[in-house]
């Protein structure tokens, strides 16, 4: 199970403040805590700094890499910021978040994937807009799979994101994602699937519970990576327990480690 720690994002107030004050110690602390909590990748997103995003991305990547030696998820709508981050990323294989089937975005991001030999999150949307059904998503996924592999991207480097939308505004939104994950797993067994969890619960009370259960449900359909807050011990404990129950944990070693780390102490 691949965990991408989502906390270093300037849309979060504390990070925004730390970035504006160039408070390297705070950024380092958050990076280190996420990795200690089990994040395999650290996401870096400073998309809200629209007027100096490139410079901020460079500072963040350098700052994070002073304290942790994990690969980074370079997360931005701006290809220039992505390239600035990739050029400095020095540990492992970085992950770009994200490419889509939209022709402009695709053409901007593909060269970066190839040049820096990255992994890439592929959003199941294209020029026809936001997908509603699983079939909408599959059409985009098939097209992206064909184009990316033909361009030389390894299946193992592709992470399809089915695009999670709120169940509060469309009651089949969760089901459509579950169907999509199942279909991708069937049709393309060698690619990965990734998603964030908080969109699903927008507009509803007790969001944590919905997010946790949606993690379990998507994992049961074949989801194998999550963008989440690894400092949420309950969620991390559930991720591990769910993977163990799905036969992804030989000798239950990861589950037992999670137990010894105290992730289930409040249960």
């Amino acid at each position: 199970m691949l965990i991408i720690g989502e906390l270093i994002n300037t849309s979060r107030k504390a990070i925004n403040e730390a970035v504006e004050n160039r408070d390297a110690e705070y950024i380092k602390k958050i990076a280190q805590e996420q990795v200690e909590a089990g994040a395999n990748y650290v996401d870096v997103n400073c998309g809200t700094m629209v007027f100096d995003e490139v410079e901020t991305m460079e500072w963040l990547v350098n700052t994070v890499q002073e304290v942790v030696e994990v690969p980074l998820c370079i997360d931005s709508p701006n290809p220039k910021a992505i390239e600035a981050g990739l050029a400095l990323a020095k540990y492992g294989q970085p992950l770009i978040n994200s490419i889509t089937g939209e022709s402009e975005r695709y053409n901007e991001i593909l060269p970066l994937v190839l040049k820096y030999k990255t992994k890439v999150v592929a959003l199941c949307m294209d020029d026809s807009g936001m997908p509603e059904t699983a079939e909408d998503r599959m059409q985009v996924a098939r097209n992206l799979h064909q184009k990316l592999t033909a361009a030389g991207v390894a299946e193992d480097d592709i992470y399809f994101d089915p695009l999670v939308k709120p169940v509060s505004t469309s009651d089949k939104a969760g089901l459509e994602v579950l169907d999509t994950v199942r279909l991708i797993t069937q049709e393309f067994p060698n690619v990965h699937k990734v998603c964030g969890l908080s969109n699903v619960s927008f507009g509803l009370p007790n969001r944590k519970i919905l997010n946790q259960l949606f993690m379990v449900q998507t994992m049961s359909m074949g989801m194998d990576s999550y963008i989440l807050n690894p400092l949420d011990a309950t969620m991390m404990g559930y991720v591990q327990a769910s993977a163990t129950l799905l036969g992804k944990d030989p000798y239950c070693m990861n589950y037992l480690n999670a137990h010894r780390k105290g992730l289930y102490d409040n249960k």
Binding site: P166, S168, T169, D171, G203, P205
Partner: peptide, 10 residues
């Protein structure tokens, strides 16, 4: 007041 939620408002 978070006494009603998005689906109910809709």
């Amino acid at each position: 007041a978070e006494d009603m939620f998005v689906p109910e408002v809709m």
